[in-house]
């Protein structure tokens, strides 16, 4: 295990969308998520985590220690079985494995911990965001719950967004029957003409040290993944999305030097004077009020 990080971090991500749908709301027919009271747009935490996972998966492509646990296609328990194999248990059939594990549990009380550590070492997303691995409840043995050091909140737009419905047509018809009586089919897309979103996150050095071993190298990869999360995620629905700025606050201590809200309050994102309808990033000004940030906290702006 590499050495875990030693400092607490907070970060602010500013990303924007142009003529696209950053995060559809399943409750509203896939329209962009909107907070109904304020009209501000939302992007959920899990949406951003998915992008980070996808980036790491693409860049690291199966490199040892940088696998991704939550992907597509193979059920959960296979990952847990990988954990079992390192303990010298081969899997032949279900029943036999259960008995083997029962024996193992009796002879080695720390087996849960070993499995958990294996999962943290192998899988980047478990090490970063944590995971609940109780799906492996065989013979009362489970990989346990891991709280990862990285915590993300919902992203919210700076100004209220307008969701626009665009109706489109296509000339190919799906079924034979329909093809007989019409020549085009209608579809629709929902887009946000422009929106600048702000997400806030936290990195706990204590959880990194005590639980998952999230290291400095992992942290650098996290920043890289955040900065590039939309670069490999283009699609017809999403339009033009980009991370415009990542502002990282590095505390001098493991527990931190000052409350997180003071740091976040110091980042002021405003629509410039005279701009009524923001349509690009230049319509906003981003200012970090250094005077409200303790000297011991290091501010790094990446774009």
């Amino acid at each position: 295990m590499k050495e875990a990080i030693k400092n607490r971090y907070e970060f602010v991500i500013l990303f924007d969308v142009e003529n696209g749908n950053p995060n559809g709301d399943p409750d509203a027919g896939n329209m962009p998520r909107i907070d109904p009271e304020s009209g501000l747009g939302l992007v959920t935490d899990v949406c951003l985590k998915r992008k980070i996972r996808n980036y790491v998966e693409t860049v690291k492509e199966g490199e040892k220690g940088f696998q991704i646990y939550i992907r597509e296609d193979v059920p959960l328990n296979r990952s847990d079985r990988g954990a079992c194999e390192t303990l010298g248990i081969a899997e032949t059939d279900d029943k036999k494995l259960t008995e083997e594990l029962k024996k193992l549990k009796k002879s080695d009380p720390d087996v849960d911990l070993k499995l958990r550590n294996y999962m943290c070492e192998e899988f980047y997303d478990v090490r970063t965001f944590g995971a609940v691995m109780t799906t492996f409840v065989k013979a009362a043995l489970n990989c346990g719950q891991v709280r990862g050091p990285v915590q993300l909140g919902f992203a919210r737009s700076i100004d209220p967004i307008v969701s626009q419905e665009v109706t489109i047509t296509r000339v190919a018809i799906t079924t034979e029957k329909d093809a007989e009586n019409k020549s085009t089919e209608m579809g629709r897309k929902n887009i946000v003409p422009y929106g600048l979103y702000r997400a806030e996150g936290y990195v706990s050095a204590n959880l990194a040290r005590k639980v998952t071993g999230f290291s400095g190298e992992d942290l650098e990869l996290l920043w890289e993944a955040i900065l590039n999360m939309f670069e490999i995620d283009h699609s017809a629905a999403r339009g033009k999305m980009a991370v415009r700025e990542l502002i990282v606050f590095r505390h001098s201590k493991e527990l931190g030097d000052c409350p997180a809200y003071k740091l976040f309050d110091a980042v002021e994102v405003r629509r410039k004077d005279g701009v009524e309808y923001p349509r690009n990033y230049q319509d906003y000004s981003v200012c970090v009020h250094e005077e409200n940030i303790p000297d011991s906290v290091e501010v790094k702006r990446m774009a």
Binding site: Y69, I70, R78, S79, E91, D94, T135, K138
Partner: peptide, 28 residues
């Protein structure tokens, strides 16, 4: 939100994949 279901029966999984070493991940 899209969330992950909690549990999959390991026995079902075993019938499909038996010991073959493939990349490991959760089924989306």
């Amino acid at each position: 939100r899209n969330e992950v279901k909690s549990k999959i029966l390991a026995s079902n999984v075993l019938q499909v994949y038996n010991g073959a070493k493939k990349p490991l991940y959760i089924s989306g």
